[in-house]
Every structure is written in C-alpha cells, then in structure tokens.
Design a protein around this nucleic acid. Structure first.
Lengths: 194, 194
DNA sequence: ATTTATACGGAGGGTGCCTCCGTTTAGCAA
DNA sequence: TTGCTAAACGGAGGCACCCTCCGTATAAAT
C-alpha cells in the first residue's frame, strides 16, 4: 500500500487533518453520551464542519464509529505505558481499568438502544416467561410420563438452553443451525432403551 | 378498569378491529424479516391502512413491537395445547421447540441491528483485543513482579472479567456500579501479607 | 504570484417521523 | 330505512435526517 510510483504526491492538507480530528472528537463525545443513533449532522455541527466534510472523511456511520473506537483503543494503549512510568503498580492497574470504563461507554450506547427496544414492560416479560414455561411444562410432562425422555430437566432449564442456542448464533442465516441444534438437544433428552 | 358507569358504551367498530389485526400481521412479517428498524410507514402500507391509523392503534414503535411479541407468545401457548392433543409426546415437544424459533426471529431482528453496528471489521476486533491484552499484561506484570498481587490471573481472564462486569449491568447509570466492582475485583487480586 | 490538486460547505431531493383535522362510516335508534 | 353521531379513517404537512453533488475556497507546490 502506501504511496509509491515516483510521482511525488502532494502532502495532505492541514485543514483536512484538523477537521478529521475535530470530527473524531465530536463523535466520541456524542456517541459516548449514549447515542449511536445520534444524527451525523449533529456530529458535524458539533465539530463545526459541513456535513459534506463528515461524509468525505467517514463515508458511512460505521466508518465513523470504527474510527472513534480505534482511537479510544489507541489512547488506552498509550495510557497504560504512561501509568506504568508514574504510578505504584497496583494503583496504575486500577487507574487503567477505570479509564477502560470510558471505552466501553462508547460501545455501551448501542447496547442501551437495544435494551430499550427489548424491554417493553417488565410485566410483559413475566407474562411471556410464564406462558413459555407452562407450554414447555405441559409437553415435557407428557413425554416424561410416557417414559420417552429423562425426567431431570425442568422447563426453566430447557428454556434457558433454548435461548442460549439461539443467541449464541451470529447474525446471518442462523435458523437452520438453530433448528439442527434443537434436534440434537431433543435427541439428548431421549431415554436410551437398554 | 373496563367499562362501567351505566352509560351503555358503543361496541368497538368492526373496521377498527380488522385494521388492528392487519397491522399486527404486517408488523410481524416485517419485523421478523430482520427489520426492527423498518419504517412504520412501510408497515402501514403493507397493512393497507393509513399511517394515522397505525399511530392510533400503536402510539409508539415500542407499543407495536410489544403487541406483536405478545401475540406471538399467545400463539405459542395455544400451539402447545394443540400439539399435546394430536401428537406423540416427543414429536410434539420437538415441533413446539421448532415453532419457537420463529418467535425468537422477531426479537432477533434487533440483535442483528446491534451486531451490524458492533462488528466493524474483524481486523479491528483483533487489533483492539491485542492492544488491550498488551496493556493489561504490562501493568499486571509490574504488579506481580512487585509482589503486590497474585500471579495466577492471565491478562485474557482479566479482560474477560472486565467485560463481563460491564455487560452484566443493565441499562441506565451503570458506570458507578461498574467502577465499584472493579475496585472490589482489584482488591481481590491483592496478595494478603501474612 | 500563480497554478492546481484537494478539500470544503451546504443546497437539494428523498425518506421517515408524528400530528392534526376534515372526511367517512359503523353502530344505534326511531 | 333513515338519520344521527361517536368513533375511526387517511394523508397532508412540518420537521429532521440521510447522503450526493458540485461550485467555491484554499493549502501546497513551483
């Protein structure tokens, strides 16, 4: 990569570098404050540059986010070296770990957005949990009474296992895999004769 | 709640009920297909009703999502009873578990949206993981060499523990708690003299 | 001082959000 | 059946955001 091929390249313009830094700074602040959702125009405004400039530097929302994240990671790396020079060991470690919380805040914004959507009312969660447990209990009971499967798996455990299977899958076309794993799991529940 | 006070109330209009069902159906389909992000106007279009009607029935995006979710949960509950009547026990259980996958799809849409934002490039993840491990390793090493903390906690475990601490916290004002837990954890790392 | 490659800014066209209100219609009663 | 009216409908409208495009400004090079 880099620049090769004779043809001396112009130096990167100073204003470009400056703007990029301002954008990064503004984005860090805004994203950390809980909003990965936040409008990019707000970021540009905060950085005091035009929206076009933001898009030139970071063509997509993800690109911006990635740059912010990478920057934070770099800062933490350097911080560790600094702390190592000027602090008593345990203290240095503790300080670094605490600074770390800030980095996570950047990512955490996204998590919150998710949970906001997931939560709904907690009454709903209780309600649906109950219905699920009852449903599983019903079927499980029958199978146990029929002597077809083991009797030491309570509905709650089965539900948790299920959810675990689903969520451990990455994004993409996850359903086939999940179905297969459920099959395997049910086979595991079966009592072997003999 | 309900309706009391003499004053015979008019019956709920038939078109209202019909529209509500259509909206629910359309929303289920669209949300399951991966888009909790999907535009509500698209849902209204798909249901064949005006956007105003959608908002009257479901004042917020969350209200709509909650209704969809609750509906799915109900269906699953009823399905269990049905399956119990008409199927051999293990088969019934398996069928129900599989139907379950569909429900999760509804919630899963949100997860995907999140991961899309989280992922960035996997090169970035490797990069940042390395820097983190190095940083921790540096500080941990010093503290161990100074005889201040136990020497059987590798950087990787510490990092995982950290992340665990952060993400186990719910939404809201989580940082104070996280910082306190980090303190406690670091205290735990300390070697007791004597 | 002049040239020119680079970068800048923001207008513009498109979409989605949500509200508001004039119009339509289902339920009820005479 | 007809008329009345509460209830529900639909979509225009105002606002915010997304992203692109291109005329203008300017830093670097000569």
């Amino acid at each position: 990569m880099e620049q090769e091929h004779g043809k001396a390249t112009r130096r990167v313009r100073a204003d470009s570098i400056r703007n990029r830094e301002r954008l990064l700074e503004a984005a860090t602040e805004i994203f950390s404050a809980g909003g990965t959702q936040a409008s990019l125009e707000a970021v540009a405004r905060k950085a005091g540059v035009g929206i076009g400039t933001l898009y030139r530097h970071f063509p997509t929302r993800e690109a911006l986010f990635e740059a912010v994240y990478r920057h934070e990671v770099d800062l933490l790396g350097e911080l560790a070296e600094q702390l190592a020079l000027n602090n008593e060991p345990v203290e240095a470690l503790k300080k670094w770990l605490q600074a770390n919380v800030r980095l996570v805040a950047t990512k955490k914004g996204m998590i919150e957005a998710l949970q906001l959507a997931t939560v709904g009312s907690s009454e709903l969660k209780v309600y649906s949990y109950d219905r699920m447990i009852n449903a599983i209990g019903l079927l499980l009971d029958r199978a146990v009474k029929a002597g077809a499967i083991r009797d030491d798996v309570p509905p709650e455990d089965l539900l948790r296992t299920l959810v675990g299977i689903y969520y451990s899958q990455g994004p993409g076309d996850w359903q086939p895999v999940a179905l297969r794993m459920v099959d395997v799991f049910v086979d595991g529940l079966r009592l072997r004769q003999g």
